[in-house]
Amino acid sequence: MSGINEALGSLFNGFGFNCIIFFCTLLFALPLGLIITFGSMSRFIPISFITRTFVWIIRGTPLMLQIFVVLYAPGLLLDFPMKSRLTAVLVAFIINYAAYFSEIYRGGIESISKGQYEAGQVLGLTKSQVFFKIVLFQVIKRIVPPMSNEIITLVKDTSLARIVGIAEIIMCAERFTKQGLIWPLFSTGIYFLIFNGVLTLLFGFIEKKFNYYRG
């Protein structure tokens, strides 16, 4: 009986790390992604070139590699070792997801027809009024489905943190296999399913809110 309690407690604590990584990544990557979007859409070519190259590298290499680079590169190259492995993981996740989000934002912004901007302009609106009063809402409606996919992927990706020794939930569960227990490993799946189930409901609700118009 105490074995079960021990296992449940350990899984629960482990999932705390998954949650920390998830929420911190969202909190910082959502706005950072927007900044990256503005960079990659900049009309100043050097800025958009550098930003797009950066996004290409981040999206083209494994997140696992990026976590190692963030953890070891400061120490080995700059003589400024990363004190906290969790910080390294968070930084890598935030940069990685900001790059993905920025591409979704960019796709959303670029999908709005030129006619919307022009209609706003001939009605005497300023550029920022056109963006905030006309374009932004339509962009949000269009990016909700791809963003929900990406965010659900983020939930599952949080378990990658174990590669630098963060005791997230799957790492905790694996320890119990040495005691001959398989159920803790299975039950981690339930954590993820419930978490993602709640997110799916939430995003479904948001999508419905935007469904009052088409286009």
Partner: peptide, 8 residues
């Protein structure tokens, strides 16, 4: 020609 109303 294409109206360009604001859909929302």
């Amino acid at each position: 020609q294409s109206f360009n109303l604001f859909p929302q």
